[in-house]
Nucleic acid binder design. Structure first.
Lengths: 234, 234
DNA sequence: GTCTATAGTGCGATAGAC
DNA sequence: GTCTATCGCACTATAGAC
């Protein structure tokens, strides 16, 4: 599966940006006072796009509601129909982002049974998803620590969850003899670090014209040389 | 060299936290109105410690000057004797941090001639330094993007600089036949990602009682399996 | 060299018209 | 469902006493 194929997969599993906005609307109707779904989704999309655009440049805290108003074309009053407060907005974005990632990785897992293919697929999918929703991933990483302790715990659990997916695959593969028997938790952590690199330092790879597929292949080469028994075909 | 040995090395090369504060004072005397050096260094240290403590929790933008005043025990007015503005404070911290890293890595490089030993030493030193000045590294990463375009460029150049140190070693080793001949820029980027992981996700390793030496060894194992010719002794 | 007190600014949020 | 106008508050930065 390359990046193009992954995008088709996302469409099939109803994970377009618009679909995620629809989910956000449905799951937050007790807060959102706008009743017409099509309007709500359209404006939510505008709001999220603007939040990412502004926050990536100067951070969520430094973003003012007036900034957001200017970028969305909505007035201050209109925006407050979509969230209770600025903090509430932060919460909605982080929560929805985390559940999107979990859903996608779970769906990807189901495509394979063989640990080698599964590991490749999950590593790729995470990087590809972070490419597609680059600003969202970057935002989640940078703003997560501003959450309340309770919500911060949820973010850390999400980190452990995606790590555990990798650990389970590594364990299964070690048991069946295709992977080296190492400290799987450490290996998974380091794989996650490589995945993160892609969206945290995107400017570096853009300026070097390195595509997401080229980056993913390099990461897989690194991982195979360490995990695959018989040296990953190097 | 393990972490303890690295700490001795830092002392020898005059890179204690206090020394760095002294440099900060000397290099910013045109801004700092305090004339007595010992007072200035003592208070600068207090200020930096407090900035890191507060910013790691909620970010530099969300930190108020009152927060800083409470944590340092200095009044608002007194603090403004050490920097022109909140932005100026940010600038000083980022600039001093970057030059500290460059100095240390350069000094480490000089200890070895052999590419394999050099690569090990530089990778270790970076992780060890980020362990010692954890909050400073974390702060630099999280707050860098709030700089002006000009200063942002300096940060990106610092990223390229530390990456280039790795690339040069990898090239020398490939030429002399001890390293595999790969895309050295990509390899260096990925090594940097692993180094970053240590200070960006420190909470994860603390909760698992993984020491900085254990982490460093694991990273080196990963790197060796990919870069060392004849598979890094696995 | 440090304090207290405060000027001036710009924020998040809302009430009420349309 | 959206807009305009505005309130009350908390912020950065400084002036002047000690």
């Amino acid at each position: 599966m390359n990046y193009m194929a992954f995008l088709s997969f996302l469409e099939q599993s109803d994970e377009s940006f618009k679909s995620v906005c629809r989910r956000t609307y449905v799951e937050n109707q007790r807060v959102i006072s706008v009743k017409k779904e099509s309007t709500a989704i359209k404006n939510l999309k505008k709001i999220l796009d603007a939040v990412f655009y502004i926050s990536v440049k100067k951070g969520f805290t430094a973003m003012t509601m007036r900034d957001l108003s200017n970028h969305t074309g909505l007035s201050m009053g209109a925006m407050y129909a979509y969230f209770k407060s600025k903090d509430d907005l932060l919460n909605i974005i982080l929560t929805q982002g985390m559940s999107m990632i979990s859903r996608v990785l779970e769906n990807i897992m189901k495509l394979h049974a063989d640990p080698q293919l599964q590991l490749e697929a999950v590593i790729k999918a995470h990087i590809y998803l972070s490419e597609k929703e680059r600003s969202w991933f970057y935002f989640m990483f940078m703003e997560a620590k501003k959450l309340s302790p309770k919500d911060l715990k949820a973010v850390k659990n999400a980190e452990y969850y995606t790590e555990k997916i990798l650990v389970d695959i590594l364990q299964a593969g070690a048991k069946s003899g295709v992977f080296n028997d190492q400290n799987h938790v450490m290996t998974a952590s380091i794989i996650k670090a490589m995945q993160q690199e892609w969206y945290l330092k995107r400017w570096k790879y853009s300026s070097r014209d390195i595509t997401v597929d080229a980056y993913t292949d390099y990461v897989l080469g690194f991982v195979k040389s360490f995990c695959w028994k018989n040296n990953g075909g190097q």
